[in-house]
Design a protein around this nucleic acid. Sequence first.
DNA 1: CGCGGGCTGTTACACATTCTCACAATCTAG
DNA 2: CTAGATTGTGAGAATGTGTAACAGCCCGCG
Lengths: 237, 237
Amino acid sequence: MLAATFVMQPEVQTVSYDTPQPRNAAADLLARRCGTGQLRIFEAKDHVFREGDPVSNVYLVEAGHVCIYRTLADGRRHVIDFAYPGDIVGLGAIGEHANNAQATARSRVRCLPIAALQQAIREDGRLGLKLCEALSRELIASRELLFTVSQRTAGERLASFLIGLSRRNERNGADRSEFVLPMTRADIADFLGLTIETVSRTFTKLRGDGMIDLAQSVLVTITDYDGLSALAEGRSK
Amino acid sequence: MLAATFVMQPEVQTVSYDTPQPRNAAADLLARRCGTGQLRIFEAKDHVFREGDPVSNVYLVEAGHVCIYRTLADGRRHVIDFAYPGDIVGLGAIGEHANNAQATARSRVRCLPIAALQQAIREDGRLGLKLCEALSRELIASRELLFTVSQRTAGERLASFLIGLSRRNERNGADRSEFVLPMTRADIADFLGLTIETVSRTFTKLRGDGMIDLAQSVLVTITDYDGLSALAEGRSK
DNA sequence: CGCGGGCTGTTACACATTCTCACAATCTAG
DNA sequence: CTAGATTGTGAGAATGTGTAACAGCCCGCG
């Protein structure tokens, strides 16, 4: 776990792979009710599911990182979310998946058959209530991102993104001011609605402004947390 | 109902107020299970609920239009959705509302007490399942909008917005190529992540390109549906 | 009935941000 | 060690913004 402090790329993946952190009440309940789900390992770049696949399972990320994205007719790509350990993937789909889910690093994922889940909900309304809450949380997150992307500058978007990662890390018991990005610049760009060039330049600018440090391109150290979160929340300038 | 063809502002409101169109399975089920909910009328600009209000009800729009929005610390506003007859409002909230809901025209709204709803879910898992589906649909819509806003030009955003309204109208049994906008330019701007000036300019441009006609600023006629939807889906250029 | 204020919508122009394209530098896998 | 992928940087182009002026409409008031 401490490996993260003298990190190299292969170890980065090992770190997150070795530190599962379920943190979400719905996920817990799900795990208890459906603990029998099959456990699967996905290598980096493997797909958990793809657009058009019938919805057969709901997935609980136990270790690693999964990137949820859509591709458009004209080739553009849109990243919807990055799932961390404890996150549920594939919940919002109806009938067939509208999104792709791709492991960005070696990941351990529990597969809960959707039929069993629906049966469990019918039998126990409280589970349905929990899932409604989980979906509500996703909805809130989605709207938060919507706002971030629609109303903010590149600097504010990236700051907000980094603060979000920092919070996730903190909640999972890791360091809030130093962490490894489990995704590429292209993933970040497609998540924030920017180009990779702008993401790269904005990273450089944040470093120049003394907000962050980048020992390697994937290793972020937040050196001015208050400044960064002020920027993220539009309280600066 | 035909009033829409020789429309004036006060009548516009009457039109939508007089044509309730529930269309959503979850809403139907909700109405059947909780049909006892109190019916309330909101005048234009009245708030159904505000940020910070405790979540006491879920609301079913029966007639009129409700605008869901958030305001930010720095005064910026972000419109999340426009609820039409048959839409459910206030579902995704936990504990207290994070959003405001404001009628843009005189509206009739059924209030379903949240406690009763939760009790009904606990007792009947199928209702929970339906609500999960309704939430999933909202999530999908939110992600669609997220993509629209993050990756598209002003013209594409507005085209996509108009096609969306057109589809909604068609589904509700109204004309797909001529309709009245129940919201102001400012609402549209805050929804699409643009300024009112850009929205106005883009309307003018779409009219210049022969895609739409604007007899009045609130009365849209789609004169080239295929062209507009090509633009909306990024299939043009 | 006419006047004036307030709100919404439209348009023009200078400006800022982000994108596109091109290429160098760096890292990674085989 | 080499080939391919990823990241970083610069210059000019495109897109959207902010400011400001103005028109149209509604409403209240005298």
